[in-house]
C-alpha cells in the first residue's frame, strides 16, 4: 500500500512537471512562428507528381522557415480527403496543404463539401502546360496534322487520358477547341501507364503534362507535338504551342500552398515571404527544372485572381463537356 502511495505521489509530481513544461512550451509557441514542425498535407499518394513537387518545395522552404516540414500523404477521393483535413485543422499555420488542379476540378466532379473560399491560398508555385504526344513512328509531325486527320476520320483517333481528372478535361478541351473533334477516349489509371500504351502503339495520341513523357522521349519511343502554353519555353525543349497549330487553347496543371482560413496575419506574412524566397532561389529553380516542373509564383491578390480565373476556366470546360456531376449550389 505504502509503495503505491509513494508511486502515486511521484506520478503526481511528474504530471505536474509535465504540465508546467507544456505550459512553458505553449507560451513560447505564442511568441514566434514557427516554433515547431509544420505538416504539409499532400492529398495524393507518395511518388506521384504532386508529391514530388511538394517535397522539392518543402525541402527548401524548411530552410527559410527554420523548422521541419513533414509531408503527410492523405490520398483519396480525387484529393478531397486531404483537402478536408486541412480545412478541419486549426488555422495556426502548422497544418498546410499542397494542392493540385484537382482542388478546383473536384468541386464539380466529386460530390464533396469542398468550398474553395474556406481555404486561404498562400501562393501558387508551379504551372505546367498540357502537352500532346504521339508514338515516334506515327506519321504526324505537328498537332495541326493530328487535328486535320482527326477531323477527316471522326471516331478513329484513340486518345489516352485519366478519366475524371484534369487530363480528361484537357482531352475534352482539345477536341472542342479544335472545332469539335470526335475521338475515342481511352481511360488509363495514371500518366505512366497511358504513356507506355502510347509507346507500345496501343493508342494514337496521349495528353498529360510534358514531364510524363520525358523518359520515353529520351528513349526515342515518343514525340511531344505541342504544349498548351502562352508561349514556347526552353523548359519544354522549345516545343510549338497549341496556338501555333491553330488550336486556341491555353491550359495547364498548377500547384499551390494553402492553409485553413483564419490564420493570423503575421503567420501568413511569414509563410508567404518564406515561400517567395524559396521559389525564387536559384537552387529550387534548378531542381524544379531538372524534375521537369515549371515555376510560376503568384502571391496575395495576384494569386487569388489566378485561382479565380482557373476556377472559371475549368468550370466552363467541365460544364461544356457535360462532366459536371455535382449540382450547382
Amino acid at each position: 500500500m505504502k509503495t503505491w502511495n509513494l508511486r502515486y505521489r511521484y506520478g503526481f509530481c511528474l504530471a505536474l512537471l509535465l504540465a508546467l513544461l507544456l505550459g512553458v512550451e505553449s507560451a513560447a509557441l505564442a511568441q514566434r512562428y514557427p516554433a515547431k514542425a509544420i505538416s504539409l498535407v499532400v492529398p495524393f499518394p507518395a511518388g506521384g507528381r504532386t508529391d514530388l513537387i511538394g517535397r522539392i518545395v518543402a525541402q527548401h522552404l524548411q530552410g527559410h522557415l527554420n523548422t521541419t516540414i513533414v509531408i503527410v500523404n492523405k490520398p483519396g477521393a480525387s484529393g478531397v480527403l486531404g483537402s478536408l483535413e486541412v480545412r478541419q485543422a486549426a488555422p495556426d499555420g502548422y497544418t498546410l496543404g499542397f494542392f493540385s488542379t484537382a482542388f478546383i476540378t473536384a468541386q464539380y466532379t466529386v460530390s464533396t463539401p469542398i468550398v474553395i473560399k474556406e481555404y486561404d491560398l498562400l501562393a501558387i508555385v508551379n504551372v505546367d502546360p498540357m502537352a500532346v504526344a504521339v508514338n515516334e513512328a506515327a506519321p504526324w509531325k505537328t498537332l495541326a496534322q493530328v487535328v486535320d486527320y482527326a477531323r477527316k476520320n471522326p471516331g478513329k483517333v484513340r486518345i489516352g487520358m485519366i478519366p475524371g481528372a484534369s487530363a480528361q478535361i484537357f482531352a475534352g478541351a482539345l477536341a472542342k477547341a479544335a472545332g469539335g473533334l470526335k475521338m475515342i477516349d481511352v481511360p488509363f489509371k495514371g500518366d505512366a501507364d497511358g504513356a507506355v500504351a502510347l509507346a507500345g502503339g496501343h493508342i494514337d495520341v496521349h495528353v498529360a503534362v510534358p514531364v510524363a513523357y520525358k523518359a520515353l522521349v529520351a528513349a526515342k519511343k515518343l514525340r511531344v507535338l505541342a504544349v498548351a502554353a502562352e508561349e514556347r519555353s526552353p523548359l519544354y525543349r522549345d516545343i510549338a504551342t497549341f496556338r501555333e497549330n491553330g488550336v486556341d487553347l491555353v491550359i495547364g496543371a498548377f500547384h499551390g500552398v494553402y492553409g485553413p482560413r483564419g490564420m493570423p496575419a503575421e503567420v501568413r506574412d511569414t509563410l508567404i515571404a518564406s515561400i517567395e524566397k524559396t521559389v525564387t532561389s536559384k537552387e529550387l529553380v534548378e531542381q524544379m527544372n531538372t524534375a521537369g516542373a515549371g515555376i510560376l509564383f503568384r502571391k496575395g491578390e495576384a494569386a487569388t485572381a489566378f485561382l479565380a480565373q482557373q476556377d472559371a476556366t475549368y468550370r466552363q470546360i467541365i460544364e461544356d463537356l457535360g462532366m459536371r456531376t455535382v449540382p450547382k449550389k
Binding site: G47, A195, V196, L216, A219, Q287
Partner: peptide, 25 residues
C-alpha cells in the same frame, strides 16, 4: 525505359529526378 512499375519505383524515379537525372535507356 524510365517507367515506374509501382509506387516504390515511382519514388525511386523521384529520387533520380531530385538529383537531376532522368533514368532511361
Amino acid at each position: 525505359l524510365g517507367l515506374p512499375a509501382n509506387v516504390v519505383m515511382a519514388l525511386m524515379l523521384g529520387a533520380f529526378m531530385l538529383h537531376g537525372i532522368t533514368p532511361g535507356p
